[in-house]
Amino acid sequence: MSEKELIVQKIVEGTVIDHIEAGKALHVLSVLGISGEEGKVITIAMNVPSKKYGKKDIIKIENAYLSPEITNKISLISPHTTVNIIKNYKVVEKRAIEIPDEFVGIFKCPNPNCITNSEETMATKFYVPSKNPPLLRCKYCGRIYSPNEVM
């Protein structure tokens, strides 16, 4: 199947996550917290030929619009990913995934003694002190983590 054909099979409404690093689609889904039990129609294509990267993965989620705060999480495992929001067959928004300067309320701090794990009303906050390779630092306990430690 060519890249073209896949893109042609457009969905009516939803989110298309494209140019995922080959083989990482399942990891991306788990980072997004999508298990499939939500009942949405999800199409996953893995190791699809790609002109730009040789191979890539694609995820299509129908009738769900993922916010930048959520999709930016993907930047930590697959930096060149793009996100297309589809409404009525049309791409209404196309965005490149960026590593933000901070993640607020997205990850749980892995340090069991961190105050963010005992104060219930509190949002976690991670700074990104380095983007290449990406590192995360808890604003409160100051610990530094690699992305796979917090995801």
Binding site: N113, C114, I115, T116, S118, M122, K139, Y140, C141, G142
Partner: peptide, 27 residues
């Protein structure tokens, strides 16, 4: 406080100046 980061968090809440007298294993 025994929790790491407790002082930074408390200072965000407090409108009066707050001194960290030791928080967790941090500072």
């Amino acid at each position: 406080h025994s929790k790491d980061g407790a002082a930074s968090f408390a200072a965000e809440i407090a409108s009066k100046p707050l001194i960290n007298g030791g928080s967790g294993t941090e500072e």
